[in-house]
Design a protein around this nucleic acid. Structure first.
Length: 250
DNA sequence: TAGGCCATCTGGTCCT
DNA sequence: AGGACCAGATGGCCTA
């Protein structure tokens, strides 16, 4: 995956960042930073009395010269920017896996084309990329789907091998033991492209879930085999999820 | 115009 | 002490 500069990134990451919260720019936080920095200059700094805040542990801001404070803030901001960009790269990698026809639309790296790149292709709905939340929800959906498919496959293979003989039958024992990649590529995703691309909008059309259900607990799973048999599957790709398992402690 | 989505800045907290 | 991580705040861009 090639990562190109993000148009949304208002300051090129290779260049040292001017601190708009300092010096002359500090008077301009209420409006957009004239140097092109992102937001975040709100009333917070005004309340904190400085870019580092009065409560910062260690060397108090008073012990740091303004130049040192700027350098420190620049370093912290740069690290955070880099961290978020890495996160976006990982998110794009996940998108590529989740969207089978990613090749039909150019790689929608937020770090390469900006967050609105999908919206900059007039008349090209297929280029619409997944939002972050949709990507994560679908990835979870996908993982659960793989799990239930694997479980079902093992059950079927078990039945077959029970009739034929485990050691002499056509079923490799490896399959019964697990570790068989059921799906080998994005093209074998069991989710339709339409459902993938319209996850957010389809959730609002979901007949089983009220609007805003993403904020609430997930609906019980109703997979044809692993879930309750015979239950109607909601066409919404977002709510086809089992109840959340034990959450990892933070 | 409202709402969704996003990048960025920032201070606080936790970890190494 | 420094870095990673997190969440709140803010403003820009886009679509319905």
């Amino acid at each position: 995956m090639n990562v190109l500069p993000n148009p949304m990134t208002r300051v090129h990451q290779e260049q040292p960042l001017p601190l708009c919260s300092q010096g002359a720019h500090r008077q301009d936080f209420s409006s957009r930073c004239p140097l092109g920095l992102g937001a975040g200059h709100g009333g917070r700094l005004r309340a904190m009395g400085g870019p580092l805040g009065p409560q910062r542990p260690g060397k108090s801001p008073r012990e740091l010269s303004p130049e040192e404070q700027q350098d420190l803030r620049r370093k912290i901001n740069s690290r955070e920017r880099k961290r978020m960009q890495d996160l976006n790269v990982a998110m794009d990698a996940l998108r590529e896996v989740m969207v089978p026809y990613a090749s039909s639309s150019p790689s929608s790296s937020s770090s390469s084309q900006g967050p609105h790149s999908h919206q900059q292709q007039p008349g090209a709905p297929p280029g619409r990329r997944l939002s972050k939340i949709s990507t994560l929800v679908l990835a979870r959906n996908y993982i659960l789907l793989l799990g239930s498919s694997l479980q079902e496959m093992r059950r079927l293979l078990g039945e077959v091998s029970a009739g034929v003989g485990v050691n002499t039958g056509p079923v490799p024992r490896l399959l019964l033991a697990g570790g068989w990649p059921l799906l080998t590529g994005p093209s074998q995703l069991l989710l339709s492209p339409e459902s993938l691309l319209t996850s957010a909008s389809s959730s609002s059309k979901c007949p089983l879930l009220p609007p805003g259900h993403l904020e609430g607990p997930m609906a019980p799973v109703q997979w044809g085999s692993a879930g309750a048999p015979g239950g109607p599957l909601c066409p919404c790709v977002v709510c086809r999820l089992p109840s959340p398992g034990p959450r990892f402690p933070k």
